[in-house]
Lab assay of single mutants.
Amino acid sequence: EGEAHRVLFGFVPETKEELQVMPGNIVFVLKKGNDNWATVMFNGQKGLVPCNYLEPVELR
């Protein structure tokens, strides 16, 4: 579910809505907001990550 994206930079959450991710993680974007935040799914957890920390990736 969602579009696959690769994480470019590590992100440490500052609020409980945000999700910690590391460079190279593959996350699935469920929704992109107008505020430059994306709702993503990673390892069964859902949370917010900055859009500019993500790049689309083709999964084969």
Rank of each mutant, 00 (worst) to 15 (best):
E1K: 11
G2C: 04
G2D: 01
G2K: 03
E3R: 10
E3V: 13
E3K: 14
E3G: 11
E3N: 09
A4P: 14
A4S: 08
A4E: 07
A4K: 11
A4C: 06
H5N: 06
H5A: 09
H5E: 04
R6A: 04
R6P: 01
R6G: 01
V7R: 01
L8W: 00
L8A: 07
L8P: 00
L8I: 11
L8Y: 00
L8F: 00
L8V: 08
F9K: 15
F9E: 14
F9M: 15
F9G: 10
F9P: 14
G10P: 14
G10V: 08
G10F: 06
G10H: 12
F11L: 05
F11W: 11
F11P: 00
F11Y: 15
V12T: 15
V12Y: 13
V12D: 10
V12G: 06
P13T: 04
P13W: 04
P13G: 10
P13F: 01
P13K: 02
P13M: 05
P13Y: 01
P13R: 04
E14P: 08
E14F: 08
T15F: 07
T15W: 03
K16S: 13
K16L: 09
K16Y: 06
E17Y: 10
E17C: 10
E17L: 09
E17G: 13
L19V: 07
L19H: 00
L19S: 04
L19I: 14
L19W: 03
L19K: 00
L19D: 01
L19Y: 00
Q20H: 13
Q20T: 09
V21Q: 00
V21E: 00
V21Y: 02
V21C: 07
M22G: 12
M22S: 15
M22I: 09
M22Q: 14
M22C: 13
P23A: 10
P23N: 02
P23T: 06
P23V: 05
P23L: 02
G24M: 01
G24V: 03
G24L: 01
N25H: 10
N25T: 11
N25E: 13
I26T: 08
I26S: 03
I26P: 04
V27M: 03
V27H: 00
V27P: 01
V27Q: 03
F28N: 15
F28A: 12
F28T: 15
F28D: 13
F28Y: 15
F28E: 14
V29D: 00
V29C: 09
V29N: 05
V29R: 02
V29Q: 01
V29G: 02
L30I: 10
K31I: 06
K31Q: 12
K31H: 15
K32S: 06
K32T: 06
K32R: 11
K32Y: 07
G33C: 09
G33T: 13
G33E: 12
N34K: 14
N34I: 14
N34G: 12
N34F: 12
N34D: 15
N34V: 13
D35I: 01
D35P: 06
D35Q: 06
D35K: 07
N36M: 04
N36Q: 10
N36A: 07
N36P: 06
W37H: 07
W37A: 08
W37G: 02
A38F: 03
A38N: 06
A38L: 02
A38E: 00
A38S: 07
T39C: 05
T39G: 03
T39F: 07
V40N: 04
V40I: 08
V40A: 14
M41A: 14
M41D: 11
M41S: 13
N43Q: 13
N43C: 06
N43W: 03
N43Y: 05
G44E: 07
Q45W: 08
Q45G: 08
Q45V: 06
K46Q: 11
K46G: 04
K46N: 07
K46P: 05
K46E: 11
K46S: 10
G47C: 05
L48N: 08
V49A: 02
P50G: 04
P50R: 06
P50Y: 01
P50F: 08
P50E: 02
P50N: 02
P50L: 00
P50M: 00
P50C: 01
C51R: 13
C51Y: 15
C51W: 15
N52S: 13
N52D: 14
N52Y: 04
N52I: 05
Y53I: 14
Y53W: 04
Y53R: 09
Y53E: 02
L54K: 01
L54N: 00
L54P: 01
L54W: 01
E55T: 07
E55P: 00
P56C: 03
V57D: 02
V57N: 06
V57F: 08
V57A: 09
V57Q: 06
V57P: 02
E58K: 14
E58P: 12
E58W: 07
E58N: 15
L59W: 13
L59Q: 15
L59M: 13
L59C: 15
L59T: 15
L59G: 15
L59S: 14
L59A: 15
L59Y: 13
R60Q: 15
R60A: 14
R60I: 13
R60V: 14
